[in-house]
Design a protein around this nucleic acid. Structure first.
Lengths: 195, 195
DNA sequence: ACGTATTGTAAGTAGGCACTTACGTAACGT
DNA sequence: ACGTTACGTAAGTGCCTACTTACAATACGT
């Protein structure tokens, strides 16, 4: 048997480039020609690695989400034992609002929700995101004693909403960086402290 | 001079249909062919009323926003003098989350922000939205005495963010109607009461 | 070394899209 | 009544884009 296939390896190589393209350009403007050019390959070989453009997009979405969760993890580990991980996450998020391309891709995906696969992928993503946040928030609130599970879940959703919106603010240049960061921090801390 | 042109009148006639199409389908899927069919005219005549598709879209966006602000106005007027208009607005919003097509169109527009005209239109829309909300929120908080202008502005932005996010929740079926309404009300009231 | 299967190159295809053109028809002022 | 202008119909045009096909080059196991 000649030439062992290393497609999986190739996919991993190209994914960061593809993800960057999607987060810069969105789904539609990231044409297959553009994607291929950025990967410095022919369109053809993208289609040997994935069945279609949608599959490439979903792979990129997944990649960005996992990358983000990894960053959360290392950030939490870096935290001093006495400080809460939620606070650490809020600070992390306020510092790189929009730098990671995840939200851009999510917003672009939201316009493709008539596609069942895209919709399901987004659903799973948001649910996992929420689950993870509830976990950290729960730990934090347990320290201060009061707060029901529902209140925790609500606050986590509101936090996710806040981050989503801050990315709209960023896209539309509704505020400058300083103001944006101030608003986000103020609101985020209100939300994690609950009422 | 023969046949007085009534283009403006025709535009007003078609706008509701066009706006409905854009909020159902988004910008891309609302093809000019589809738009024409829904209006029961040929594509051709749309291009006699507007220079291009983008102009139609922006007109629809404006139409939906003005419609929404009108609804706010009548809702506030309907309010009994003793109850606050902000509370009235929150209740209104929680009742018809997603029914009006405004947010769908806004989200679709957010994927076209590389276009300067679209970006400016959205910027103006959000700023006017915010301004209006700050006004009502200010009146409400003046009653309870404390709250700086910045706090008011912050809360107004957070409210807008919450509504934006609830529309994502709706699109992705992340919660059923009851749960969605509960979450929105709970968070909205926290936000208008400030911390 | 050689055959086989993968990787790379380049051109092409079919469909969808925004936008036009050409022309027939109807209404208004005089 | 008639000429002018707006309105309506229908077909088309050229471009873009996701996806293919045909074929050459290369690397591995035997």
């Amino acid at each position: 048997m000649p030439r062992p296939q290393k497609t999986e390896e190739r996919r991993r190589e190209l994914l960061p480039v593809l993800a960057a393209a999607f987060s810069e350009l969105g789904y539609r403007r990231a044409t297959t020609a553009e994607l291929a050019e950025r990967c410095q390959v022919q369109e053809n070989i993208l289609y040997r690695l994935w069945p279609d453009k949608k599959a490439i997009f979903l792979a990129a979405l997944d990649y960005l989400f996992l990358r983000r969760m990894d960053k959360w993890k290392t950030e939490i580990e870096k935290a001093a034992s006495h400080e809460s991980s939620v606070i650490r996450l809020v600070e992390l998020t306020s510092n790189d609002l929009g730098e990671h391309g995840l939200y851009r891709v999510i917003f672009t995906a939201l316009n493709e929700t008539e596609d069942v696969d895209v919709k399901n992928a987004l659903q799973r993503l948001y649910r996992r995101y929420h689950e993870r946040l509830v976990l950290e928030l729960g730990k934090y609130r347990k320290l201060s004693g009061m707060s029901t599970a529902t209140e925790c879940a609500d606050s986590a959703w509101a936090l996710i909403g806040l981050v989503s919106f801050m990315n709209i603010v960023l896209d539309l240049d509704l505020m400058d960086g300083k103001e944006r960061k101030r608003l986000f921090s103020a609101m985020a801390f209100k939300l994690i402290d609950g009422s």
